[in-house]
Design a protein around this nucleic acid. Sequence first.
DNA 1: CCTATTTTCGTCTATCCGACGATAAGCATC
DNA 2: GATGCTTATCGTCGGATAGACGAAAATAGG
Lengths: 238, 238
Amino acid sequence: MDPQADYPPFAVTVDLVVLTVRADQLSVLLVRRAIPPHRGAWALPGGFVHADEKLADAAARELAEETGLTGPVGHLEQLATYGDPGRDPRGRVVTVAHLALLPDLPTPVAGTDADSAEWQPVDRVRTDRLAFDHARILADGVERARAKLEYTPLATAFCPPEFTVAQLRTVYETVWGTRLDPRNFHRKVTGTPGFVTAVGRATEGDRGRPAQLFRRGLATLLYPPMLRPTTPHGRDLR
Amino acid sequence: MDPQADYPPFAVTVDLVVLTVRADQLSVLLVRRAIPPHRGAWALPGGFVHADEKLADAAARELAEETGLTGPVGHLEQLATYGDPGRDPRGRVVTVAHLALLPDLPTPVAGTDADSAEWQPVDRVRTDRLAFDHARILADGVERARAKLEYTPLATAFCPPEFTVAQLRTVYETVWGTRLDPRNFHRKVTGTPGFVTAVGRATEGDRGRPAQLFRRGLATLLYPPMLRPTTPHGRDLR
DNA sequence: CCTATTTTCGTCTATCCGACGATAAGCATC
DNA sequence: GATGCTTATCGTCGGATAGACGAAAATAGG
């Protein structure tokens, strides 16, 4: 196919909404753009898809480049695709946004093609200064993450391989911005089949009673789901 | 931006998974391809995105072309994007798949750039003979539709503007392939805030007691959700 | 020891869901 | 027009679940 002939040529990129929970804050990985357009502005990490590369591979490659991660840590999924004609001044660029959830890694986050990269709490991001349409992509990614915590065990993607129920609860509280009763949460998590499996050991050295350590279970969907407390998300009027 | 210079050029298409409920069957709109590649094979309707066109507009345009619909009927949303290097023999084509849910329209379904178009029950589609990677896109679309019936009032998109509880129940039963208790379903639907609003009139002429007519409510998310009966979707092992 | 802290187990109650009986309200047929 | 058939709608009952909260267990720090 010759794009010049019949159909308009597009450039295709992948952008990443990389979320983590650190210091009791849901945070997103942002890079400062070193080249135009939007030079100097904060943006989601991303880049062009190579000629013979799958979309998911491109996203995984960009994630590895930005975080230094190699192995399959956390979670990566396609989010949505954004392609409004005017979204990139360079021309017709369609971006396939992906959502990544990572544990709080002591990541150096060295920028390669960006001045710098850093974690920013999502509720302190100056969305009005983000490059391109990345404010909307970020909002969609955060909303997707919040919703997915309800029906999937994806909260474990924010945790290290072994974690306590309290750590998992902190993830929920941080992402949702709510407080959860530790006793009911404990019952719910340990009672939902496939959510977590006990590893048999416990923490030591911390304050309070030692906590059992768990790993992520086999379930891909939670049943029953972990519903958000009051006013669950979009419980609309009437 | 010159795609020839720095980055590989892509063609971008939209493909549509158009679903409806007709004759107690969840059915998908398929077209028979009139041109190569995959000439003569069944495929999802779709086409190239124009040079100055939003993705959603392209999807709406294709939907209108294939169904003859003009006004905003039913529901249309982005599904996912598929761009594996080898998925189209003509070159690097990325397709942004969309999901459309429509009421059972007496649609002529006249093919424009296709030999013919027709509704096919999704469980009778010869997925091994669908063009490109459309079998997977179809499967993803059906699964998305099934899942969304649980948490959203989208089942109403399969219904005409005014419908009875029984019609809505038939939609659920057809899409999910299950049977639902009419009494519990009635209680659930009328008791979920914002799901449906009574229009005040009732059906006449049918068999049995006349049924109240409803319209879609204002809610965008159902709370509590309409959970699938036994073995809810992915209730995995353990 | 004593206390503070955190984990974990139980209890109580309101609510929700599935199963199912009972009634309402139309049409068909005699 | 009475009877029966069909479908819609309302109620009831029991088990399961979630939220509120008490209580015990298990550690660290004085």
